[in-house]
Design a protein around this nucleic acid. Structure first.
Lengths: 233, 233
DNA sequence: CGAACTGTTGAGAGGCTTCAAGCCTAGTGG
DNA sequence: CCACTAGGCTTGAAGCCTCTCAACAGTTCG
């Protein structure tokens, strides 16, 4: 399933933009770059599957990766999308468990694989790296906790509005207020935790209410404050 | 609201049983003990509230603390219960955010407060401590992700069965198969993410189906494999 | 002993899901 | 180049799971 077609460009393998590596010494950064392996992944590629043993974590330097768990009846629950500057697979690696999510490329991506040994080396040699890592995980844990509360207490309508706003935060809008990520209705449903049909119906209600405009998978935001009110934030 | 009635016993303030501190040097452990402040908290006490600025984390050496978020209409969403050997408040501390949960004592507890400075000192001086901390957070993150998937995809019935089994894992059963934690119906509902009435109805269905036996808040497990099947695990 | 909280049961309403059928779009192969 | 197929999208109808509201019993505690 893994398909590596061509070498990524120099710029696409550069890790100096990553917050996580900001506090590394020159030597540490050199070692990191020496140990990493960057590859280009086509859309649709599975980077790793739930249950896999992982050999390292990945830095996303380009593209978008979808992270999801497989639940009841094989229905996928999307946990997050990782884009440039973010890292994936580190959770299972650190807790030394098998992967508990599947990572699938939804927009042609460049990923840099950093071996477990290198991660351990950085943790041992540089406390600021560990500290930064702790902050990343802790922030993700808060987001997970927030999401548990929402999903447990809010209606599907509220959750869909919230998910749209969340996507807006993470992927920005273009100059015409279009969401810069293209998802299927099913993927939206798998984020919200509902049926595809429900998403379709609610989206067209949002459209009727002039909150958004739809054109295929393109979603244009027309009235963000109102959307926020629907989301009950 | 904070009520400290009497000094905890020597044994109740001992942190040597904590996995997290296993790899500390003697000096580090001495400093930890010097810096900590242990107090006894009565049932019902709020240790800290959502939005508070935290000055350190707490080690639970006795009792049970309920951690929850306040969601829509002030309805609480229980995220977990912390018991002897576990730590709380470390997430917000590490990511340097305001507390995103409220901690309430539901069984008379002894908590040892460890100042933020001491935490930072340990992170800086001992990479094994950081590593252990990372593992703890990562494990909690996996549990949160698992729970998101369940709550998004399973029925209330399945979730209630699962919550009961989860409680069994965390708090064990006495020699008569009674769950060793006493929760109100509302608290069960706030874990599952449903209405109190639904929990009541489902519990009595489980009772009819001879899966459990009820006596006030006491829950006796009669048929765990069947309960597991109901939970759809 | 009364107040406040907790637990229980019933009835009705409604949000969502499921099933089913048809449309549309995009990619493929003849 | 175009028909064809597969997967995504849309809409309708039916029904159920779950919530809300309401009334009341039981329990705990000052």
């Amino acid at each position: 399933m893994r398909s590596v077609i061509k070498r990524p460009t120099e710029e696409e393998t550069n890790l100096s933009g990553f917050q996580l590596f900001k506090k590394l010494t020159e030597d540490e950064f050199i070692r990191l770059n020496y140990d990493k392996t960057c590859s280009l992944f086509k859309k649709g590629t599975i980077v790793y599957r739930e249950g896999n043993r992982l050999t390292g974590f990945y830095c996303v330097t380009k593209g978008i990766v979808k992270l999801f768990k497989t639940g009841v009846d094989g229905k996928e629950q999307i946990l997050r999308f990782a884009k440039r500057g973010e890292i994936i697979a580190y959770r299972s690696l650190l807790s030394q468990e098998l992967a508990c999510t599947t990572a699938k490329v939804i927009e042609e991506a460049v990923l840099c694989h950093v071996p477990y040994q290198t991660l351990l080396y950085l943790i041992q040699s540089n406390w600021q790296f560990s500290h930064h890592m702790l902050q990343i995980v802790c922030r993700e844990l808060r987001e997970a906790n927030d999401y548990i509360t929402d999903i447990a207490q809010k209606t599907v309508r509220e959750r869909l509005a919230e998910v749209l706003l969340l996507l807006k935060e993470n992927f920005d809008l273009d100059n015409q207020n279009n969401l810069q990520i293209s998802l299927t209705r099913e993927e939206l449903a798998n984020m919200v935790g509902t049926a595809t049909e429900s998403v379709i119906r609610l989206l067209s209600e949002f459209k009727q209410d002039k909150l958004i405009e739809l054109q295929g998978r393109k979603i244009k935001f027309l009235n963000i404050p109102a959307l926020r009110r629907v989301a009950n934030i």
